[in-house]
Design a protein around this nucleic acid. Structure first.
Lengths: 338, 338
DNA sequence: CACTGGCACTCGTCTGTGGTGAGTGCCAAA
DNA sequence: TTTGGCACTCACCACAGACGAGTGCCAGTG
């Protein structure tokens, strides 16, 4: 084992020990607990070098070392081996998710499951509207001058909007509207929809034109507003105060701010892609002391949304990554199949 | 002012001071800050009596007094005057809620608003299915042997379930199903629905009977399962570790357990009814150090659901009560009008 | 040249000691 | 019934010293 190799080995040992004990780790315990084959003094030299390079740091002079963000980064990139889930765990995931009976339920179960598996905060994004296709559009009269427009997508999302009309409508007219809407939009990607929707008023007779204009305005609004996607959160109770010496409040606040969470998933571009942000790598100030492990989920190559976990930088990255990965895969399959 | 009256006055002063300072309050500051017209020594006598009766307690010998749950209870029942919201606050509530465009959005805005107003954790229950009426039922074919059943209620809830069929169906059959379902169920209370639903299979021709049986089974299931209602939560970041000396973890866990929250609303039986649980009055162990201020909301006399706030027992009850009350009223009106 | 044992040094943590002050309960007097 | 006086309790704080974990450095060894 070359010197360089051993230094990395020492770093791995430090990260692993620190993750499991939450205490700065010194050269002595390191030599005892890991079979590095060298004396504490040698390890101290390596540690000095690692500190020089910025991978570890000392909270104070007479304490052991703890990994820095940079140290975790190296650990994640080069040193951690993904540990596959046990068959029992796989089984549990599958049976836990299979009981669900609609999209809301699937996602609620998913966060819950992921939070439980990782003992962290879990986050799941609703399947993105922009990659979904329209499965059905429904127009329901709910008052004399009011319609409810319901859109069902192939990922199981149901979006609804109230449309205020200028005047009255007959059941026949509504039926016409429904037929036209479905004929034009069914099975179309929502990303292609805006152009089609804009042309809808011209596709109907003059008596319906005014109403259809109202409907298409609302539809376009919905696509824009809702592309600010929704998110489900779970396991906030797993945030442990000891991991956030200052306060967990800013973290909780950031979690309630959906915008922040959505940005976390912004960079995931394909299913089965992992993206990890460690501590200061997060642009959000409040999340500087947390790490985020995010993945995409989807069917085939289509990215439906993001899924991930948030916790202290001192986190079991290997375990978390494999849990996120596995759950993402199952959710992707499940939603593809509905 | 009789002796008995002054004792209550002292209790009020203690509660108010403790709420605003979060520190045990002693006889001296009490005499200084409140114009009770007597000396600290006299107040000490009253305090001894109040402690004897269990309304206040001493954290330790040489400290001031803090109210007990029993003390807060007396305060809430007899001593606190509801302070009406300022016109500005009313205005804010109204404009904040008016921008919403569907039920989900209304409820999300509501919790957010309530959390902000009270600086506590806010909870809103979805309008109960059992008091809602069916506005429309939609049947959509989503695969050869699979239907999606969508139910829209007059409170704006949209429930969806996938139905697996034994065999294939034609568009005409589906249209028949839709017509029959709507003819039988539209505008019917969901509490009356089970009987109607059970009779549905007999209302259609033999070719549809099998399918209709499947649909009605699923519908009944939905009514049962979903009467375990849904809940929206907000403002968890307002939980301050200072108020929960042991840990806020059990509180967060209880909040994630929807069942627990639902039980909190179980006793509210009419809109505009307030129900307050203080500390140990909560049956849930984890909530023994919290107080819950809950109210019903609804249109007219019909209770749609619960709305409320959860915080430390050391809470501004008067302000919280009026905020919950006001928001409940607006939400009730808003949902009645949709 | 890498490794090792020895050693002096640093500094956070723990423990014990007084001092201080807030707050009390009791009592005798008004 | 109220009040001032007073002794007493006890949490909190600051300080000092002992302790020990952990380090960096150095000289010696293969």
């Amino acid at each position: 084992m070359s010197l360089e190799e051993r230094k990395l080995e020492v770093l791995r040992a430090i990260v692993e020990d620190y993750i499991s004990t939450n205490e700065p780790v010194g050269s002595k315990v390191l030599a005892e607990r890991h079979s590095l084959g060298v004396s504490p003094a040698t390890i101290r030299n390596d540690m000095a070098a690692l500190e020089e390079d910025g991978y570890i740091a000392q909270p104070h002079t007479s304490a052991g070392r703890i990994p820095t963000d940079k140290g975790y980064r190296l650990f994640v990139d080069r040193l951690s081996s993904v540990k596959p889930l046990s068959p029992a765990e796989r089984k549990a995931i599958q049976s836990f998710l299979e009981g669900a009976f609609d999209l809301d339920d699937v996602l609620r179960r998913t966060v819950r499951l992921l939070a439980q598996l990782t003992r962290q905060v879990a986050v799941v994004q609703y399947p993105s509207l922009t990659v979904s296709s329209v499965r059905h559009l429904e127009v329901v009269q709910i008052a004399a001058t009011r319609l409810l427009l319901v859109m069902i997508t192939d990922t199981g999302r149901v979006e609804q909007r109230v449309v205020e009309l200028g005047g009255h409508t007959t059941p026949d007219q509504i039926s016409d509207l429904r037929t036209t809407l479905n004929a034009s939009l069914r099975d179309r990607r929502l990303s292609d929809a805006p152009d089609i929707i804009a042309g809808l008023p011209d596709a109907v007779g003059p008596d319906l034109r005014a109403i259809m204009t109202g409907l298409s305005t609302v539809l376009l609004e919905t696509l824009v507003e809702r592309s600010e996607e929704r998110i489900v959160l779970g396991g906030t109770a797993n945030l442990d105060a000891v991991d956030f010496p200052h306060s967990i409040r800013p973290v909780l606040e950031a979690l309630e701010e959906q915008v922040v969470l959505l940005r976390l998933f912004g960079e995931v571009r394909a299913p089965k892609t992992m993206r990890i942000r460690i501590g200061g790598e997060n642009s959000e100030e409040a999340l500087r002391s947390t790490s985020v492990v995010a993945s995409g989920y989807g069917s085939g190559d289509t990215l439906l949304g993001g899924i991930g976990v948030l916790g202290p930088t001192r986190m079991d990255y290997a375990g978390t990554m494999s849990a996120v990965f596995a759950v993402a895969r199952y959710v992707g399959e499940l939603l593809a199949g509905s």
